[in-house]
Simulated scan of single mutants.
Amino acid sequence: MKLTKKRNGPNTIDTLRREMDHFFDDLVPFSWSREQNEKALGTWAPSADITENEKRYEIMMDIPGMDKNDIKVNIQDDRVTITGERKTEEKEENDDFIRQERYYGSFFRSFKLPEKVKDDDIKATFKDGVLKVVIPKAEVIKPKSIKVS
Rank of each mutant, 00 (worst) to 15 (best):
M1S: 15
M1N: 15
M1V: 13
T4N: 09
T4R: 02
T4F: 10
T4V: 12
K5F: 15
K5C: 01
K5W: 07
K5S: 11
K5Y: 14
R7C: 05
R7V: 07
R7W: 05
N8D: 01
G9R: 01
G9A: 09
G9V: 12
P10I: 00
T12Q: 03
I13C: 08
I13G: 02
I13P: 00
D14W: 00
D14P: 00
D14T: 09
D14F: 08
T15L: 05
L16S: 10
L16P: 00
R17H: 00
R18C: 04
R18H: 05
E19C: 02
M20A: 06
M20H: 02
M20W: 04
D21N: 04
D21M: 00
H22F: 01
H22K: 11
F23G: 01
F23M: 02
F24D: 00
F24N: 02
D25K: 09
D25A: 13
D26L: 03
D26P: 03
L27I: 06
L27A: 13
L27D: 06
V28F: 07
V28D: 06
V28A: 06
P29G: 07
F30Q: 08
S31E: 07
S31L: 04
S31G: 01
S33W: 01
N37M: 04
E38L: 14
E38V: 01
E38D: 12
E38R: 10
K39W: 08
A40W: 13
A40M: 11
L41R: 03
L41P: 05
W44S: 15
P46W: 05
P46Q: 04
S47L: 13
A48S: 14
A48E: 14
A48R: 07
I50A: 06
T51M: 02
E52L: 04
N53K: 11
N53S: 12
N53T: 06
E54D: 15
E54N: 15
K55T: 13
Y57K: 09
Y57N: 05
E58Q: 15
I59C: 06
I59P: 09
I59S: 03
M60C: 10
M61R: 08
M61D: 03
D62W: 05
D62C: 08
D62I: 06
I63Y: 14
P64M: 09
P64Q: 06
M66C: 14
D67E: 12
D67K: 12
K68I: 02
K68T: 02
K68S: 11
N69Y: 06
N69A: 15
N69E: 15
N69T: 14
D70H: 03
D70R: 05
K72L: 08
K72W: 00
K72D: 14
Q76M: 08
D78F: 06
R79I: 11
R79N: 05
T81P: 03
T81C: 11
I82M: 03
G84T: 07
G84A: 12
E85T: 05
E85N: 13
R86V: 07
R86Y: 09
R86L: 09
K87G: 08
K87V: 12
K87R: 13
